[in-house]
Every structure is written in C-alpha cells, then in structure tokens.
Design a protein around this nucleic acid. Structure first.
Lengths: 158, 158
DNA sequence: TCTGAAATTGAGTCATC
DNA sequence: GATGACTCAATTTCAGA
C-alpha cells in the first residue's frame, strides 16, 4: 500500500536519476519527451513527498583503504540502553548501518574497517565497551551485488 | 594501505559531494578557496581512479510500498553453482546486495519486500527454487543509522 | 596542478494553457 | 500537470603560469 502511486513518468525519472544524480534534468526531459520544467516540477514533488531523499556520490571504501566490510550482531547487557548505544555508534565513522531486528540479537550493524586486524580492534576497543554481552561477526569477502532498489522493474499491484 | 592517499582538498571535496551529489562544483570551489576548474579536475581524477564510482539519488523504499527490509543467509544445496545463483539474484529487483561471507552460510543477501507476506513469497517462490538447503531471515524493523562511510573523519595512518 | 576567461549548456521561475 | 521563454548560474574546455 504505497502512500503515492508512481506513474510511468515518475518511474522513468527515478530510474534515470537513481543511477546518476548528475544527469542533466534537460536530458531526462528529452528522454521522456516532456519539457525540462515538467521534470523539475516532478522531482520537486517527489522530494517534497519524501520519495526522493537526496543524492550522493558513491565512494569505494576499498579504494581509500577500507578493505574489510562486516556485519555484526550485537547482544546488549542492558537492552534498555538501546538509544544510547545508537548514539555512540553514530559517532563511529566506520559504522554505516544500524538495524533493530528480529532474530534474538539486539542490533545488527554494518561497518567498514581497514583490514581484519582493524575490525578486531573496533569490536574489542569500541563496541565491547558499549555494554555487549556478546557479538557475532560476519565478514563480507566480496559484494557480488550492490545496487539501489530498482523501481522501474517493479509492479505496483500484485 | 590505500592505493592513493587523499589530501585535505580531496577529503573536503568528497565530504561535500558524498552528502549531496547535486552541490554545484563552484560552491565546492568557493568553500575550498580554489577555482571551479580545479574541483572539476580533482573529481575527474577521483572518478578515473575508481575512488568515486558515480552518483545516485536516494529513493526511500518505504515510500514506494517496500516496507519490509530483510537480510537472508542462504545455504546452497550445490555451492558450486554460486555464480549461477548470483546471476539469478541479479534478475530479482528486490535483491539489493549479495555477499560472499564467513560464517557458514554460502551467501548473505539484503532485499526489500512490500510486506512480510510478500517477503515470505519471495523466499518460497523465488529463492527456494534456486537450490537452497535452508535459509535464515533477519527482518529489520528500523534502520536507526544508514549513511555512507565518512571519509572526512578518518585518519589515513594508524 | 591550478587559474581565469570564454563558450556552451542547464536550472529554476513564471505566465499561460 | 505541462509548456516555452527568460534570466541567471554552472559546467566544461583550454591556453598559460
């Protein structure tokens, strides 16, 4: 039950700008056979609805020396301090995601480290002091797929 | 051991463009007290080195009806068919990440579904037929943190 | 590597349909 | 909702330091 149903033009716009935030709106306009002003207005609407939430350049962590990607399940000694722990995690630049999940663990985070040794030191020196009873680490050797949700390939009704 | 050591200007550029791919390069230039052409050249170099890998607008999956985010660990009946399974996963728009990991499972994927029922049908009707011996699903109720790796806060040497 | 200036192209606004 | 014309600003290129 989407809050807003995207029409074909919305989807084409989203497909183009979600793959390349720098594509000129006029180029999108030409590809869609509408005016530049129409694209401008559509994108403004999508942003005001919160469907489009901003843009970013993608930086390759490996290329800047962050060669280890890991997921860590955290089990807290004091689960009631959840919000506090989130605040601490937010201060750690290595932590890029934090989820509240099913599955018994209290939180599930994704982080980047320079190497396995650095990962270990992050877990021991920065995560343990947050009050962990234990943790479970999954290291990603390789991201075979990493991409945004492809809106254009999706049916609205099924 | 980064392949390329970023200087202060690179980091400032990356910090600005990784939060907003639409920021005018001239604005970056003014913030850095260099010419627009210098920013242009730096970003081209970062792209040719593969450090900057492109840009994207961020779409909120929830707002377009994808309200369930899940991680699924897959255990394959025939692990030698790994590459084949990756190709099949690539065809599923709901799958946004696929990792080859430690931890016993053969692959670890991230996907978006419309709701829990839809998630179940994806697992049963689309993932099981790929040849799973079993799977483990973690549902994310809430992403308390979701952001890019913050290059600017990072030390190159330690 | 950076600069400054020139040429081209795009963004954003608005009255109008 | 979309258009076309307009103004202002940004991108891109290039010779030169």
């Amino acid at each position: 039950m989407p809050k807003y149903t995207l029409d074909a033009l919305d989807k084409k716009i989203i497909r183009m700008i979600s793959n390349d935030a720098r594509v000129p709106f006029l180029e999108v306009a030409r590809a869609c056979n509408v005016s530049g002003a129409a694209i401008h207005q559509r994108i403004q609407k999508l942003q005001s609805l919160g469907i489009v939430k901003g843009s970013q350049f993608i930086i390759d962590p490996e290329k800047i020396g962050y060669e280890t990607c890991a997921y860590v399940g955290l089990y807290l000694k004091y689960p009631e301090r959840f919000d506090n722990v989130v605040e601490e995690l937010r201060k750690m630049p290595e932590v890029v995601e934090c989820h509240y999940t099913t599955g018994g663990m209290d939180m599930f985070i994704k982080l980047y480290a320079k190497n396995n040794h650095h990962l270990l030191s992050i877990i021991h020196d920065k995560l343990q002091p947050l009050g962990l009873s234990r943790s479970e680490t999954i290291i990603s050797f390789n991201a075979a797929i990493s991409r945004p949700l492809n809106v254009a390939d999706i049916n609205d009704e099924d």
